[in-house]
C-alpha cells in the first residue's frame, strides 16, 4: 500500500479506536454504501483479532435498493456483527413516501427523525459515521469529533477546535458526539482502497443494463413495483451505475461503461462532476445539506 492510502488507514483506525475508548455506548452507522463498507473494514481491522466492540445501526427508510438490503444482511452475518435496524414506524403509518410526500419532508421524517429516534432509544453517545469532507461544502467544514447539542443539533458556529490528534470528547448530559473517521478520504481514495483491499461493495456501483426512467433530467431506476410511472414514462434499459447509494427513487444513476473497479478509477480521473450531484435531496434548496445537518441529519 502506498503512503497516501497507508496514512489514511492509520488515521482512520486511530480515530475509530479513540471514539470507542472514550465512549460509554458507541455505535457505528452503517448505510450499506461504499463508504460504509470501507468504514466497517477499517473498524474490523482496528480491533482485530477482537470482535468489533460496538453494534452497527442501519436506518431503514424501506425505500433502499433491494440489492442494498441483501448486501447488508450478508455482510452482517459474515462478520458476525450485531446489526440493529430502525424504521420510523410513525412515518410509515402516515404513508410518508418519496414519491408523493416531497423529498425534503420525506427525508426529514424517514431519515433525520428516524436517526434521532434510534439514537435516543438506544442512548448512544458516540456515533461513528462514514461522511467525508470532499462530499459537500458543509461537510468540508465539519470536525472529526463533531459535537451535537440537545436534540442532536449541530451548531456550525461553535465547533470545538481540534488539534493534531487531540480530540475533546467530553459530553454534558444531553450532548452526543458524531465521529467521522473518513473525513480526509476522497471518492478516489475510497475506490483505490476498495481495490487494494478487495472490499466487497454493492453491485449497483458497477455499470450494468438496468431499467430506468428520466425524471427532471435524472436517471431513476425502477427497482420495484411501488414505482409509480407517469403517463408518458416507460422504463428503458440503459447501461448505468451509481456513484452513491440512498433511497432508490431519490438517487440518480449515471450512464457509464465502468464494470470494474479499475474502470471506475479511470472514470474518476476524467470525471468533471461531484459525486453527490446524483443525490436529489441535496438540492432541495441552497445550503440544504447544512440545514439538514443542523437538524441532526448525518
Amino acid at each position: 500500500m502506498g503512503p497516501v492510502l497507508r496514512r489514511l488507514e492509520d488515521e482512520s483506525i486511530y480515530i475509530i479506536r479513540e471514539a470507542i475508548a472514550e465512549s460509554q455506548n458507541p455505535v457505528l452507522l452503517y448505510s450499506i454504501g461504499k463508504d460504509s463498507s470501507v468504514l466497517l473494514h477499517l473498524a474490523t481491522k482496528a480491533f482485530h483479532p477482537v470482535k468489533l466492540p460496538c453494534p452497527l445501526l442501519h436506518i431503514d427508510t424501506t425505500w433502499k435498493f433491494r440489492e442494498m438490503i441483501q448486501f447488508r444482511d450478508r455482510m452482517a452475518s459474515e462478520l458476525g456483527a450485531s446489526l440493529l435496524t430502525y424504521t420510523n414506524a410513525d412515518g410509515l403509518k402516515k404513508g410518508i413516501n418519496p414519491f408523493s410526500t416531497g423529498s425534503a419532508h420525506y427525508t426529514s421524517v424517514m431519515k433525520t427523525e428516524a436517526l434521532k429516534q434510534a439514537l435516543d432509544l438506544h442512548k448512544f453517545d458516540m456515533i461513528i459515521g462514514g461522511s467525508r469532507r470532499d462530499e459537500e461544502k458543509s461537510r468540508a467544514k465539519e470536525r472529526i469529533f463533531s459535537l451535537r447539542e440537545n436534540g442532536h443539533r449541530w451548531d456550525p458556529r461553535s465547533q470545538r477546535p481540534e488539534f493534531w490528534k487531540l480530540h475533546n470528547s467530553r459530553l454534558l448530559p444531553g450532548q452526543t458526539m458524531r465521529v467521522f473517521p473518513l473525513s480526509n478520504w476522497t471518492e478516489l481514495d475510497i475506490w483505490l482502497y476498495i481495490h487494494e483491499e478487495n472490499i466487497p461493495v454493492v453491485p449497483l456501483y458497477f455499470a450494468a443494463e438496468r431499467p430506468v426512467v428520466i425524471r427532471n433530467g435524472s436517471l431513476i431506476m425502477v427497482d420495484d413495483d411501488r414505482f409509480k410511472l407517469g403517463e408518458n414514462e416507460t422504463p428503458q434499459m440503459k447501461k448505468v451505475r451509481f456513484r452513491t447509494l440512498g433511497c432508490y427513487p431519490l438517487t440518480a444513476a449515471i450512464e457509464s461503461e465502468a464494470e470494474t473497479i479499475p474502470q471506475i478509477i479511470d472514470e474518476l480521473f476524467v470525471s468533471g462532476n461531484p459525486e453527490r450531484s446524483g443525490r436529489l435531496i441535496d438540492h432541495d434548496e441552497p445550503n440544504s445539506m447544512e440545514e439538514k445537518k443542523v437538524m441532526g441529519y448525518f
Binding site: 469532507r133 461544502k137 468540508a140 467544514k141 456550525p156 480526509n184 447544512e290 440545514e291
Partner: peptide, 18 residues
C-alpha cells in the same frame, strides 16, 4: 461557505479541500 458565513460575509471555520 456555510450559510452563517455568507450571511456575515466572513469565513468562520476551516474548510478542507482535496
Amino acid at each position: 461557505g456555510l450559510k452563517a458565513e455568507i450571511e456575515q460575509g466572513i469565513t468562520i471555520d476551516v474548510s478542507y479541500r482535496y
